[in-house]
């Protein structure tokens, strides 16, 4: 029987449209494999760079009324050492698409990291040009369409694997950045990363995060992410992966109706546990059946049709 949940995104074949989002659990091969055991259709690693990084000191995660704030600070062992973790995922008996999230402090760093990750076995790369809380990388690149284009173009020249670009919502015109990425060769877009945000404890009068400013995730940002996906879908031809506050199948379907071919899940794991991948997948499946759709493709961007 045909799997109505199967979806192909930039050559990657997913058995279901849920992915483990970047920055969540993906620091080791074992935990990436665990996400696939729990039902993720693809997994994205924590962002890796050229050199090891400690990240910020704690507190790095804080709960606010409407979601979670984090400023972890791109901790990673450096891409050479991380290659072992990539290989461990690829050695799994039931390998699933592995997307390696990478960052760099310059275009040439992006290229170097991309090459090592590709060599180690990444099925695709996700360019983190959207981290809201580390200087000289992430959103500082992602807010500038010509810098985004430069990074994408150079990485594309140097690796054969599909390149995803994860966008920041912290821009006036996300469509402009999305178009720049696609024109430069991006194979897919991920929308969106966290929203720059902050929390202060009133008792002690101190900012809670050690970095003071971080990124907001969870239900609070879903309407923002939906709007971003909706706007981008109208203007580009590559698949979009929705990200931001996906907790239930309804959220996932909403993203698809806006134009996403798949969704990434992160923060919801804290509330729902690892079972969230299966519960979202099952819910999408029932929705498709109930509404008489034969595949996910049939609902991608459906809200745009008049």
């Amino acid at each position: 029987m045909r799997n109505r949940l199967a979806i192909e995104i930039a050559e990657l074949k997913l058995t279901n449209p849920t992915m483990l989002a970047a920055g969540i659990l993906g620091m080791t091969g074992a935990s990436l494999r665990e996400a696939s055991v729990w039902g993720a259709g693809a997994v994205v690693t924590k962002s890796v760079g050229l050199k090891p990084r400690e990240g910020y000191s704690n507190p790095t995660v804080a709960q606010v009324d409407c979601g979670l704030l984090n400023a972890i600070g791109l901790p990673n062992p450096g891409v050479s050492e991380f290659s072992e973790e990539i290989k461990e995922v690829k050695q799994s008996e039931t390998p699933i698409p592995l997307i390696v999230s990478i960052y760099g402090f310059s275009t040439s760093e992006f290229v170097k990291v991309a090459k090592v990750a590709a060599e180690a076995g990444a099925d695709a790369l996700e360019l983190n040009v959207s981290c809201p809380h580390v200087r000289d990388t992430g959103a500082e690149i992602g807010q500038n369409p010509s810098l985004v284009a430069e990074v994408v173009e150079e990485v594309k020249k140097n690796v054969l694997q599909p390149v995803f670009v994860k966008l920041t919502p912290n821009v006036a015109d996300i469509v402009g950045v999305a178009k720049a990425a696609v024109e430069a060769g991006a194979d897919a877009l991920v929308a969106v990363n966290t929203v720059r945000a902050m929390a202060i404890d009133v008792e002690t009068t101190r900012p809670i995060l050690s970095n003071r400013i971080g990124g907001l995730s969870g239900p609070a940002i879903k309407p923002i992410a939906i709007r971003c996906v909706y706007e981008i879908y109208r203007e580009v031809d590559v698949p979009i992966v929705g990200c931001g506050g996906v907790t239930s199948w309804r959220d996932a379907v909403e993203f698809m109706l806006a134009g996403a071919s798949a969704v990434q899940i992160g923060t919801a794991i804290s509330a729902k546990g690892m079972g969230v991948f299966k519960s979202v997948t099952r819910g999408i499946s029932s929705y498709l059946k109930r509404k008489g759709f034969r595949s996910i493709e049939e609902i991608v961007g459906l809200s745009h049709r008049s």
Partner: peptide
């Protein structure tokens, strides 16, 4: 870091 099962630091 997070203590709620998402950051992957304590695996």
């Amino acid at each position: 870091r997070c203590a709620i099962g998402i950051c992957g630091t304590c695996v």
